[in-house]
Write a protein that binds this DNA or RNA. Structure first.
Length: 593
RNA sequence: GGGGCGGUAGCUCAGCCGGUUAGAGCAUCGGACUCAUAAUCCGUGGGUCGUGGGUUCAAGUCCCACCCGCCCUACCA
């Protein structure tokens, strides 16, 4: 039965290029999942984009002497290129600075407002006297009034751990330019999260046994002390507040997190419009059989398991204050929040400022996308923080991708090509032949079940067990020794090639580039698993911007398919590049800079 | 300070509701083979499961305390 699957991928923040820690959290897992779901016959809509509003972007733009818009334009493109390079199959990767996104974000705000879940409140805020801009708590530091530590941040003292109010800091100063902030009254809009604690609790409880326990436990725990949360900011960079008297103010904008999570919906709507059927998005958001899977790193859990669901419930009129759905109609909550832990780098935290970082684009300049995808799938931070080391990367690449899998493909095709020039016919099968064929066939259900649950490590490990068994089979059968019995030799190579073909299917979600090559080597025509591309688009003739999209309706299906005897075979070229162990030292030297 | 997660072989990691001699891959060592990017296959050694208590016939697996690492606590996945 074909199902509608929304793959909602966390929106990368447009303040710099992506490093491999970022893509190990939201990128590769979401793509593996989506490719699998498409192969399984489901209708996948995979959306995301760059998150371009907020104070950090404004601050960095000021620092570089450009406008926030210019900075966002730059990194929107850089990030899109990073993600395309990895082969991430977004149906639409867009951005939050589109007219469409502004309109949808404002519609959600209005729906919540009309249903009584948003209310105004006057608070004291810190303002930078020279720029007139609000200073978020994090951008203020000073002496802690409790312990006397001098480097306390406005929201918390790192020394004694106490939560602080920036107005209490002794000698407060801006971390941006050192000046002393002034505190003024400012009016903001608050999202009434407590009005959702009961309905969120019921909803979360229903996910027991389905979600990863760490995500669920964390989310349930937050329900205890939900507080109203400000969803506006004193800033001129962001989505305007769509109320009379506010709309035209250039000093008030929606809080970046409020608008960013709406991106999942606005991107779905933009995709539908570009596809020619403006209502197509409803199949993923209003169809009771559709499922929505959200992929992110662990620091994002609260926004996806608490705030975004609360916003949807409020828009639907399903919080404690009741209400009616807004003009878009009732919207679906996440089915599952899939969160990754963090990747560390040679034992240290990723840090762009301290050069403890590997950018995706630098990585892809020297190594293949499949090599990185494989490493993240098999050794990534799925259940706990994990450490990326270059020696581990080289070992995995050389020992598993090249020696086990690449070599199996190469030796099988090479022998068959040399001896028969085509896929040979199978004669009578022995027990060993049947056992191996059975092995790869049953792997589809086993690997598929793991992928369905987002257990990528288990999935790729099981798929690789087939590869190991196939190498063992060849070692046992020794087809190179039985030159006097070409019929038997044909059978063995037919079986080996069949299992190679099955394994390439099993590995397609992880290694789409190399699986596409194997598909061609074995005589496949057309596209096996589609790859993404960047297209320049615009909105009603406005400025163009890049989006990631693609046609992913390839031939790939999650099933065994018989190879055709007689298909011509050419001598193969290696699939994966073997790495010289010296690259470990070279890469470590780069880090030490 | 509050909350969450983790600390298992040299390395990177699996171990669901507690149950026989704690697993995988890589690395080490020994052997076999030569179709293949010297790749493959077989065998071998290696861990008082962070520390200290407790519950139990039985604990890596439950409870308590502590140590260490990481995340969130109004914006670095």
């Amino acid at each position: 039965m074909s199902q509608h699957i929304l793959t909602a991928v966390a929106w990368p923040y447009a303040n710099g290029p992506r490093h491999i820690g970022h893509v190990s959290g939201f990128g590769v897992p979401s793509d593996v999942f989506s490719r699998y779901q498409r192969m399984a016959g489901n209708k996948v809509l995979m959306v995301s984009g760059t998150d371009e509003h907020g104070t950090p972007i404004q601050v960095q733009a000021d620092k570089e002497g450009v406008t926030a818009r210019e900075l966002a334009d730059r990194y929107n493109r850089v990030i899109a290129e990073d993600l395309v390079g990895l082969g991430l199959s977004y149906d639409l990767f867009t951005r939050t600075t589109t007219h469409n996104h502004y309109a949808v974000a404002q519609e959600i705000f209005l729906g919540l407002y009309k249903n009584g879940y948003i209310f105004p409140k006057t608070t004291m805020g810190a303002v930078s006297p020279s720029t007139g801009r609000t200073l978020p708590d994090r951008y203020i530091e000073g002496t802690c009034p409790i312990c006397g530590y001098d480097g306390a941040r406005g929201d918390q003292c790192d020394n004694c751990g106490n939560q602080l109010d920036p107005i209490d800091l002794i000698n407060p100063r801006s971390r941006i330019n050192g000046e002393t902030p002034v505190f003024v009254e400012t009016e903001h809009f608050m999202l009434d999260l407590p009005a959702f604690s009961e309905v969120l609790g019921t909803w979360l409880q229903s996910k027991q046994g389905e979600w990863r326990p760490n995500v669920l436990k964390f989310s349930l725990n937050l329900l205890g002390d939900l507080q109203p949360r400000a969803i506006s900011r004193d800033l001129d960079w962001g989505v305007p507040i769509p109320l009379d008297g506010w709309r035209d103010r250039n000093d008030k904008r929606l809080y970046v997190w409020f608008d960013a999570v709406i991106g999942y919906l606005s991107a779905s709507i933009e995709w539908a419009r570009r596809s020619g059927d403006p209502d197509a998005w409803r199949q993923w958001w209003q169809n009771p059989d559709a499922r929505g899977y959200y992929f992110m790193g662990k620091d994002n859990i609260v926004f996806h398991s608490e705030i975004w669901p609360a916003m949807l419930l409020g828009y639907n009129g399903e919080g404690a204050r009741g209400g009616t759905p807004g003009s878009l109609g009732k919207l679906a909550l996440p089915s599952e929040v899939v969160s990754s832990e963090f990747l560390t780098m040679e034992g240290r935290k990723f840090s762009s400022s301290r050069q403890v970082v590997i950018y995706v684009r630098d990585f892809l300049e020297r190594y293949s996308a499949d090599a990185l995808r494989y490493y993240i799938a098999v050794a990534g931070p799925e259940n706990q923080d994990t450490d990326f080391t270059w020696s581990e990367f080289v070992n995995r690449n050389n020992g598993e991708l090249v020696a086990a899998w690449g070599n199996l493909v190469n030796r099988s095709i090479s022998m068959a090509a040399k001896n028969f020039g085509a896929i040979p016919e199978a004669g009578d099968l022995t027990d060993a032949d049947r056992a191996l064929l059975e092995r790869s066939r049953t792997a589809f259900a086993a690997v598929g079940a793991e992928l369905q649950r987002s257990r990528f490590k288990n999935a790729v490990t099981e798929a690789f067990d087939v590869v190991r068994d196939a190498n063992k089979y060849l070692a046992d059968q020794e087809p190179w020794k039985i030159k006097d019995d070409p019929e038997r030799q044909k059978s063995i190579l037919h079986v080996a090639l069949q299992v190679v073909d099955d394994a390439k299917t099993l590995l397609t979600p992880f290694l789409p580039n190399s699986s596409n090559k194997i598909f061609e080597m074995l005589g496949g025509e057309g596209v096996w698993s589609g790859m993404p591309e960047i297209r320049e688009v615009d909105e009603d003739g406005g400025p163009t911007y890049p989006v990631i999209t693609g046609d992913y309706q390839g031939a790939a299906r999650w099933e065994h398919r018989p190879i055709k005897a007689g298909t011509p075979l050419a001598p193969p070229t290696p699939l994966f590049a073997k790495l010289d162990p010296k690259v470990v030292d070279e890469e470590l030297a780069r880090l030490a800079d």
